[in-house]
Nucleic acid binder design. Structure first.
Lengths: 285, 285
DNA sequence: ATAAGTAAAATGAATGATTGTTTCGCAAAG
DNA sequence: CTTTGCGAAACAATCATTCATTTTACTTAT
C-alpha cells in the first residue's frame, strides 16, 4: 500500500546519512537527538525496512537506506524548489513589457502564458503601443523592457529577428491594382513613412484613405478590400494577407525586431522574461 | 524560510485539482470533506499563497496553484516510486547467478553493485564455477541464470560477446619458448581440451605441469613464468599477460560468452538482473 | 426580478493521535 | 573507567480529524 512519506523525517534521515550520526544531525536540525531517533524509527517502521545499521559509535546506511537516500534527495530538492518559488521574494514582483501592436502576434501570448506558469507571482503589465513611444518610455525609465520594430538597432539592444516588410490586403483583394493606391495606416505607425517613400520612389500615386489609431479599423478597411497596408512578414493576421503583386508594387526594406531591457531595480525579473522572449523567437528562428 | 510540505495535504490538493471539487476529492481519498478543506487551508497558510479560487460551485486553481500542481505531481510520483520499491513484494526476492571463474572480471562486480543499488531487497547468490557444471545446475533447475564460455550456443541462450582465446604468460615471460611447452590449467577448465588439441595439431609437444582446482595456483605458476595458460581476450588479470608469440604458438578459436536464464518462478527477477548484464557487456561491446 | 431550494465549501468544538522534550539506561570506543 | 552516542519510557503540547453547523452562490420557479 502506498502511503505518504513524512518529509521532516526524510530530511532528518538524509542529514543523518550525510553527517554519519544522529546527534550531529539533530544539532544541525535544531532538534534533540531523541526526536531524530524517533523519526528514523518511524520511517523504518512505515517502510518496513532497516535503513540504518547501528554500528556502535555512529550509524551507517543499509542498502535500502542508500536507495532511499537517492530518492529522498530528489524529493527534497523538489520540495525546496517549491518553497523558494512560492515564498521567496526573489520570485515575486512586477515587470512592464512594451510591445508594438503589430508584433503582439504570434509570439507574445505564448510568452506571457509560459512566463506566468513559471512565475505566477509576477505581474506582467503589457503595454501595446508604437515603437517610438515605447522607446520614449524606456528612455524615461518608465518601462522595464520593450520590443521594437525598426531599421537597424540602437545601443543596448538585441536583435531577435530580421523580417521583410510586405504589402498586405484583403483575401483575394484587388485594391492593390487601383491607382491612386489606397493606403490604410495608423497615425504613428513606424512603417508608414517607409511605405510612402517606397511608393513615391517607384512613381506610384497613393492616397491615405484611413488614418486611424485603432488596429481594428485598419483591419476592417483592409479586409473589405478598400485599401492595402504593410506589415512585417510572419506577423499573422486572419484578416490581412500577403499580396502577390509580382513586382507591381515596390519592394519594402527589411526591419528588425529588437529587444531592449532597462537597467533598473527590476532588471533581474525583466531579464528572466527576456529569456522567454528569446526562446520564443529562437524556436522557429 | 524553507519548510517541508505535508505530502498528505499535497495529495489532497492534487486530487482536488484533478477532480475539480473538494467533496469529490474527499470521497476518492476516503476522507471527509471537512478534512480535505482543512488540509488545503493549511497548505495555503504554510505557503502564504492562495492556491484555489473558490468559484461558487467547485474550485479552480490559481496561478500559484498551477505551479504547485506541477511540482506536486513530480514529488508524489517519486514518493510513490519509493513506496513501490521499498514495500512491494515484486521488488524483493533471491536470484542465483552462475558465472565461470574466468569471466568474473571485469564486468560482474560492477553488475552486482549496480543491481544491489537498484534492488537492495534482492539477494543475489553468486556461484562461480565451470561452464559445464553451471549448465548442469541450470538444466536441473537449481540456478536462475548463468553465463557460460563455450563454443557456439545452445537453445535458449543469448550471445553477449565473442572473444578469441589467447595464450597468456607471466610478465615478459619466456616459458612459451620452451619445449615441451609447460601448461597450467584447472581440472575442469573448458579451455583445456581446446588448447591441448591446438598444440597437438601444430605438432608442439606439451606437458601439463599443474592441474589445480584453484585459480590462485594457476595464477601463481604462470606469473612465476613456470607455465603458460589460455584465457579469453578482454579477461583482465594483473598476473597473466597476452603472449606476443608471432605465430610460434597455434591460434586458438573464438569462444562465446553466453547467457541463459532459467524458466522458473524467479524468472522475472532474473530477467531484471539479465538487463544489467546486457548493459555491462553492451557498454564496451 | 425576487425568493426559495440546493449543492458545495468553510467554520467551530471536542476528541484523539502524533510529535517533541526530558530523563534514564546501555553499549561501544578510547 | 570514562566518554560518547543511540534507544526507550513517561509526559506535555501541538496538531489533525470528525461531526455538526453555518455561509456562500448557483438554480429554478413563480
Amino acid at each position: 500500500m502506498i502511503r505518504n512519506l513524512d518529509l521532516t523525517a526524510l530530511r532528518s534521515f538524509i542529514t543523518v546519512a550525510e553527517l554519519g550520526g544522529v546527534t550531529k544531525a539533530a544539532a544541525q536540525l535544531h532538534l534533540t537527538q531523541s526526536a531524530v531517533s524517533m523519526q528514523l524509527k518511524r520511517l523504518e517502521e512505515a517502510l518496513g525496512q532497516a535503513l540504518l545499521v547501528r554500528s556502535g559509535r555512529g550509524v551507517r546506511l543499509s542498502l535500502q537506506g542508500e536507495q532511499l537516500l537517492g530518492y529522498g534527495r530528489r524529493i527534497l530538492a523538489l520540495n525546496d524548489e517549491v518553497w523558494l518559488r512560492m515564498t521567496d521574494a526573489q520570485f515575486e514582483g512586477e515587470v512592464s513589457f512594451g510591445v508594438p501592436a503589430d508584433i503582439v502576434y504570434p509570439h507574445v501570448p505564448g510568452i506571457l502564458k509560459r512566463f506566468a506558469q513559471d512565475y505566477p507571482r509576477v505581474k506582467v503589465q503589457l503595454v501595446s503601443s508604437y515603437t517610438e513611444y515605447l522607446k520614449g518610455l524606456l528612455a524615461a525609465g518608465k518601462i522595464d523592457m520593450i520590443l521594437t520594430t525598426e531599421h537597424g538597432m540602437e545601443k543596448g539592444g538585441e536583435e531577435l529577428r530580421t523580417a521583410p516588410l510586405i504589402w498586405v490586403g484583403g483575401e483575394d483583394g484587388r485594391a492593390w491594382e487601383e491607382r491612386p493606391l489606397r493606403l490604410a495606416f495608423e497615425g504613428n505607425c513606424i512603417f508608414r513613412p517607409t511605405a510612402q517613400r517606397a511608393l513615391s520612389d517607384a512613381g506610384i500615386e497613393w492616397d491615405m484613405v484611413v488614418t486611424s489609431n485603432s488596429t481594428r479599423t485598419i483591419e476592417a478597411t483592409v479586409s473589405a478590400d478598400l485599401a492595402i497596408h504593410a506589415l512585417l512578414a510572419e506577423t499573422s493576421s486572419p484578416y490581412m494577407h500577403a499580396i502577390s503583386h509580382n513586382g507591381a508594387l515596390p519592394e519594402l526594406p527589411m526591419f528588425n525586431i529588437n529587444m531592449y531591457v532597462a537597467k533598473g531595480a527590476r532588471r533581474e525579473m525583466a531579464e528572466r522574461l527576456a529569456e522567454y522572449v528569446r526562446l520564443a523567437y529562437g524556436a522557429d528562428g
